[in-house]
């Protein structure tokens, strides 16, 4: 693979094209004119201090914020040319294509198997052997199969935090999405579990577009190809990760990554 430093955005296929995105929770203006293009099959990190709107942005990408009363969005998000907020488009279809993993591991209070099989079953898959295959494949992709293959019938709540988060990734992959949105997936995990997830991301970006929101600048620097820096609802700078962390254009980006605020 070509190193990220010599790539330019033009050479890559776009996954998301975001144009002038504004959003509000009630009267609170959370996103202010965000425009960016997120490339396919790369890891794109969004960093910034708490409350800067990075989670709001990622939660717009699979329309999960539709569920929050009083949430409103203006502007355009296109996913491979399709307007995600097209009124004719069913949000369920969006979420099947664009999977999401949340900040705190949130396995269902069911068995490991049933957690992973939940998505495929919703889509009508009843065939036991097909389900078995999907569960195994998804757990393998999430680097969890070896640890849980003997206890698929046990409660997912008995797993450790890091295992639970990888189970949540497996559960998301089982639906067969093209994109993985990760909203601070490691903030509740210890460093060893975090390292495992980052290693997994390296692997997953071969087949998936990954968008990673993180608090942790080292994580963005280690795990991502592109990085966007957000502040107070605005996208301050968006560029190759190497550039953001070595030679940022904007003085506010520089102040943040060198630890002078945030």
């Amino acid at each position: 693979m070509t190193p990220a430093t010599v790539e330019t955005q033009e050479e890559l296929t776009q996954a998301f094209a975001i144009q002038g995105l504004n959003s509000w929770y009630g009267s609170f203006h959370a996103l202010k004119g965000v425009s960016m293009t997120i490339p396919e099959k790369r890891v794109t990190a969004i960093i910034g201090p708490s409350g800067c709107g990075k989670s709001t942005l990622i939660r717009c990408l699979n329309r999960i914020n539709d569920l929050i009363p009083g949430f409103r969005v203006e502007g355009q998000i296109a996913f491979k040319g399709q307007n995600l907020y097209d009124p004719a488009l069913d949000p369920i279809q969006v979420r099947l294509q664009i999977g999401m993993v949340f900040q705190k591991p949130n396995p269902f209070p069911k068995s490991i198997y049933d957690n992973v099989a939940f998505g495929p079953r919703l889509c009508g898959e009843k065939d036991r052997s097909k389900l078995d295959a999907i569960v195994e494949e998804s757990l393998r992709k999430a680097a969890l199969w070896g640890e849980v293959k003997e206890k698929l019938k046990q409660s997912a709540l008995a797993l450790s935090g890091g295992q639970q988060q990888r189970l949540c990734i497996a559960r998301t992959l089982a639906v067969g999405p093209e994109v993985l949105l990760l909203d601070e997936p490691c903030s509740a995990l210890d460093p060893i579990a975090t390292a495992k997830i980052e290693e997994l991301l390296m692997d997953l970006k071969k087949s998936y577009t990954v968008v990673l929101v993180t608090h942790n600048m080292q994580q963005a620097a280690r795990a991502s190809d592109y990085t966007g820096f957000m502040l107070l609802g605005e996208l301050v700078e968006f560029a190759l990760t190497a550039k953001i962390f070595t030679n940022p254009t904007n003085s506010r980006t520089e102040a943040y990554i060198t630890g002078r605020f945030g």
Binding site: I64, I92, P107
Partner: peptide, 23 residues
């Protein structure tokens, strides 16, 4: 019922009724 359970269900493409019934 914790809200993250509902969010996880919706994020996997569940409808409102499927989320209520299964989760």
């Amino acid at each position: 019922v914790p809200n993250p359970i509902r969010e996880a269900s919706y994020a996997l493409g569940a409808s409102r009724w499927q989320t209520v019934w299964h989760q």
